[in-house]
């Protein structure tokens, strides 16, 4: 097989510029490989040629991640590379973060396979593990030889486009992605077996460790409701007739903003339910039951708040991926804030 063109990232120490006193250096690029890079080429058994090495001072990288990312993307693109490798950075915090910034930028902007090597608790791991195969290392460079060997074994498979197996089989840190596979036994039988082990005090392994959720602190109270611009919004899928943007009944791929300007309430037939997770009959009959525009107008007439925002944000919150929900919430919040909205009544179903 022809040698694949590879770009390698190392910090200022491994590029031979200097130690801590050179940590402020801006990103720079050198032709070919460093000494670590040459060992890496050997670990790949001749499958790669490091055509370029990118380096940067650790402090500069930590303080200017966007600058580093932009330079890395530019230089990797110029090099016509097929693969990007960073490190190993072992337990070095700033170096690991720089590797993570570089890997993430190359993977997301250029769509190339990327690889790094870090100590599993290094802060760079969480930053880039979703898009990067990270070989786990010990905390110091004493294990350099073994780490490079592991990188070579996994990297060759990545270059060949082979299916990559489980983290403990292939030697990489779990990327936090759950994929469907077929088990030997059906779920019911696995459940009975797990219970028998649990009852008899034998070790068992859950198939789904409990996810950890973010805690969202409540926003401070609106200071003066009498003057505040208030919005209404919902995840209950109340959309104009015909669902014009085709919000999906489940795992919605979007959120939308629709006008309620001049409306006293949501009329039957003018609005409908796009949500696939609840009985829609009552809300079809009277859409205000899910998005209470009628009551909001009544409150407005009583001057309980300053004004009602004339559009409403809506999505379908039905088995929607949490990452999508986080994104929609952030986007809705930013838009409403830009428009001067101080509070929102968000109804859920």
């Amino acid at each position: 097989m022809d040698k694949k063109r590879v770009v390698h990232y190392v910090n200022q120490f491994y590029s031979g510029v200097g130690g801590e006193e050179k940590a402020g250096m801006t990103p720079f690029s050198i032709d070919g490989a460093t000494s670590v890079g040459r060992s890496l080429e050997a670990a790949f058994d001749g499958a790669i040629e490091i055509v370029r090495t990118i380096s940067c001072g650790d402090n500069f990288a930590a303080e200017n991640p966007d600058v580093l990312a932009e330079k890395v993307v530019q230089w990797v693109r110029e090099s016509d590379a097929a693969f990007f490798v960073a490190g190993p950075s072992f337990a070095a915090g700033r170096y690991g973060m720089a590797c993570a910034v570089a890997c993430q930028a190359v993977a997301e902007k250029l769509g190339l396979p990327v690889m790094a090597a870090m100590e599993p608790s290094s802060p760079g791991v969480d930053m880039c593990k979703r898009v990067t195969y990270i070989v786990p290392t010990s905390d110091s460079a004493r294990s350099m030889r073994e780490v490079l060997k592991s990188m070579g074994q996994l990297g060759v498979k990545l270059l060949r486009g082979e299916t990559i197996g489980l983290p403990h089989e292939e030697g990489y840190i779990p990327r936090g992605i759950r994929v469907n596979v077929t088990a030997e036994k059906r779920g019911a039988r696995r459940g009975v077996d797990m219970l028998l082990k649990k009852l008899s005090g034998q070790p068992y392994t859950t198939e789904l460790p409990m996810p950890v959720f973010d805690r969202v602190p409540p926003a401070p109270a609106v200071k003066d409701m009498r003057s505040a611009l208030i919005a209404i919004g919902t995840e209950g899928g109340i959309v104009p007739k015909g669902n014009p943007d085709k919000i999906e009944a489940h795992n919605a791929s979007k959120w939308c903003l629709y006008s309620i300007a001049g409306l006293e309430g949501l009329a039957k037939g003018e609005f409908e339910v796009a949500h696939g997770g609840y009985d829609p009959v009552m809300a079809t009959e009277n859409p205000n039951r899910v998005l209470p525009l009628d009551v909001a107008r009544a409150c407005q007439k009583e001057s309980l708040f300053g004004g009602l925002f004339d559009k409403y944000p809506v999505t379908v919150g039905n088995v929607t991926a949490v990452r999508s929900a986080e994104k929609y919430g952030r986007e809705m919040g930013e838009l409403l804030k830009e428009q001067g909205v101080e509070g929102i009544v968000l109804t859920s179903t």
């Binding site: 596979v181 030997e184 059906r186």
Partner: peptide
């Protein structure tokens, strides 16, 4: 969710 099939997930 009664486990009638053999599909499951693994973390990669």
């Amino acid at each position: 969710e009664l486990g009638a099939e053999s599909l499951t997930t693994v973390l990669i």
